[in-house]
Write a protein that binds this DNA or RNA. Structure first.
Lengths: 152, 152
DNA sequence: CCGTTGCGTTAGTGGCACTAACGATGTAGG
DNA sequence: CCTACATCGTTAGTGCCACTAACGCAACGG
């Protein structure tokens, strides 16, 4: 597929345009992950929120928003859904009555463990064509690009 | 008034999850490219369509849809916009009256050349933190992932 | 002929990132 | 203390984009 001739001078053919490849791959990866999570009655935000809670303990919604990148307006629904299913509890913070403290329940922790496995296997499906060192390299590249882009 | 809470600073990467990094990077890359193109009164679909036309000559809309991945329902608007600006011409195909033949105009070719440069510089901004060999490697990785994902 | 398939087009759906505004509550400065 | 402002959770809404459905028309195959 890759024509060694088309290095730099002539405009990149559509097929090899990094930005395009990036969004194509991201789109399909997103679908893969979303469908996988849907089969476990979850969405990617559920996972993000639960992981954030596990990593740094109970937090206010605004705090969670900052950690996960989910907008605090959208977080409301996420917490609602997690609470409905009994995975988190939302309680007013006595120390600051503007806040809600969100806490993972034991059931939530169990659910999260299940999702961890699911996500890991989905990552594996996603990255199937790459060797382990290549996967690490890709992650490194993406990490650097993200760093760079979010500082603009 | 923009609430400073809503400005997403670097969402503390809760994890170096490839699928997550992928969509974060793709999102920002997309924004970068879209904003750049908007400054030239263009959208990414315009560019994709024009490139496809240059690469393989006049084509029907359905053909273009297949080549660019743009849904033929959305392609209608893209061709409309390009035609309004005088970059392409849409004419009924005498050989098959169901079809429209879309052809680039000279003005369209000039416009495309301008966009080529713009896109190239945007790719450069995007990939700034990577060395040239790293960029090629990233493109290779993404290409392989895309191949793999689109065969599922 | 007639059923199927491909064409361009219109309309609509659902999800997602993102913004705006509000009432309640906290904090800081004079 | 009072006033001004910031932050909290929440509701509502915007605009974009991938994607679907259905249409009338034309071509093709049996």
């Amino acid at each position: 597929m890759t024509d060694p001739m088309d290095a730099q001078e002539t405009p990149a053919p559509l097929r090899a345009l990094p930005s395009r490849l990036l969004s194509l791959v991201a789109m399909q990866a997103d679908r893969l992950v979303s469908e996988g999570l849907a089969r476990a009655d979850a969405r990617k935000w559920h996972y993000a929120a639960l992981v954030a809670l596990r990593e740094s303990g109970p937090a206010s919604q605004a705090e969670l928003s900052r950690r996960t990148g989910i907008y605090r307006s959208d977080l409301v629904a996420v917490i609602n859904e997690l609470a409905e299913r009994g995975f988190v509890e939302r309680a007013p913070d006595p120390a600051d009555r503007r806040r809600n403290v969100v806490t993972v329940t034991e059931q939530g922790r169990r659910h999260l463990r299940r999702l961890d496995k699911l996500i890991a296997s989905l990552q594996d499906d996603l990255l199937a064509p790459l060797t382990q060192p290549e996967r690490e390299q890709l992650t490194d590249f993406l990490g650097r690009l993200f760093e760079h882009l979010s500082r603009s």
